[in-house]
Simulated scan of single mutants.
Amino acid sequence: MRSALITGASAGLGAEFARQLAADGADLVLVARSNARLEALAAELRAAHGVRVEVLVADLARTRDVERVAKRLCSEKHPISLLINNAGFGLPLHFADNDIDDEVRHLRVHVEASMRLMHAALSVMRGRGGRIINVASVAGFISRSTYSACKSWLIGFSRWANAEYAQDRVSVTAVCPGFTHTSFHERMGLAPGDEGVPDLMWLDARDVVREALRDAARGKAVSIPSLRYKAIVALTKVLPASLTAGVARRGRV
């Protein structure tokens, strides 16, 4: 993989994608809201692997910022061969109690920004070839407020796009991890253990990213890291939605 653009790259799965791709020799464009964290990661990767790393500060809830990232994706001088739509954040599950503006911003980042960036990437990847990874979630297979709805959209759209653009040598993969040790929960104000999730259900970010990149290279439409979550997704197809929704409420994101 020659070059990759990663949104939400300053921490969590985004930073882990950056580290593994840089170790494999890929040049990177790192996108997030925090300039200081992006610059620190970029310096680390340049020093460790000698790759070219660009920093692009953007808030993907803002249309103008999304347009700037889309413009970078369309660059012919420094083409992008892998787009990773990873930016996102969680909200409390009680939709009616949440601020509606927060919910709209949540939708824009998870769905609208991902769609716009996919559109930009496809405009230059078709025929030339490329890969798109959309970081979704196992939550996309169950009923779990708007977070689940956003991730379900990503999964469905990725499945369609992977089939539709295969003839153009472009693969689209929805990566669907379960609970993963990152800073995601801390940003929601949750301390370790507050989520109410057994230790057995937690995944390591390095394993998630490793399997995601492997599945994307194979052209898979959906990647579900770990056998335990593959089994859970299989069960969601046969269990009543009311039951899976009840179980899902035990976790916080």
Rank of each mutant, 00 (worst) to 15 (best):
Thr182Ile: 08
His78Pro: 14
Thr180Pro: 00
Arg250Gln: 05
Gln20Met: 07
Val233Ser: 05
Arg218Gly: 10
Leu28Gly: 10
Asp204Cys: 13
Asp97Pro: 10
Ser148Val: 02
Ile155Asn: 06
Thr7Tyr: 08
Ser145Asn: 02
Ala9Arg: 09
Gly90Phe: 02
Thr7Asn: 04
Asp27Lys: 11
Ser3His: 04
Asp102Ile: 00
Ala139Leu: 08
Ala58Thr: 05
Gly127Gln: 01
Trp202Phe: 01
Gly130Tyr: 13
Thr146Arg: 15
Arg144Ser: 12
Ala70Pro: 11
Arg218Ala: 05
Ile133Tyr: 14
Ala161Met: 04
Glu164Ala: 02
Met1Phe: 14
Pro192Leu: 08
Leu56Ser: 10
Leu56Ala: 14
Arg228Ile: 09
Ala32Ile: 08
Asn98Glu: 03
Val138Trp: 05
Ile232Leu: 05
Leu93Val: 13
Arg108His: 01
Val111Met: 09
Arg108Lys: 00
Thr173Asp: 10
Ala139Asn: 12
His185Gly: 14
Ala61Asn: 00
Gly12Tyr: 06
Phe179Ile: 11
Glu112Arg: 11
Ala32His: 03
Ala234Cys: 15
Gly246Leu: 06
Phe89Asn: 00
Gly189Cys: 04
Val170Asn: 04
Arg19Val: 06
Gly140Tyr: 09
Leu203Gln: 09
Glu16Asn: 12
Ala43Pro: 07
Val222His: 06
His106Leu: 03
Ser3Thr: 03
Asp65Met: 06
Phe95Trp: 08
Glu112Ile: 07
Ser171Phe: 00
His94Val: 14
Ser123Ala: 13
Ser3Cys: 00
Leu73Asp: 09
Tyr165Ser: 10
Ala113Ile: 08
Asp102Val: 02
Lys71Gly: 00
His94Ala: 14
His110Phe: 00
Glu39Trp: 04
Thr7Met: 04
Asp168Ile: 00
Val69Ala: 10
Ala22Thr: 09
His119Trp: 07
Gly219Val: 12
Gly193Ile: 00
Arg169His: 14
Ala58Asp: 05
Val51Asn: 11
Ala234Asp: 08
Leu60Ser: 03
Leu28Gln: 01
Cys150Val: 04
Val208Pro: 00
Ala43Arg: 02
Arg169Ile: 15
Glu195Pro: 07
Arg68Asp: 05
Ser123Asp: 11
His181Arg: 08
Gln20Ser: 07
Glu211Phe: 10
Ser137Gln: 05
Ala234His: 15
Ile224Asn: 12
Ile100Thr: 07
His185Asn: 12
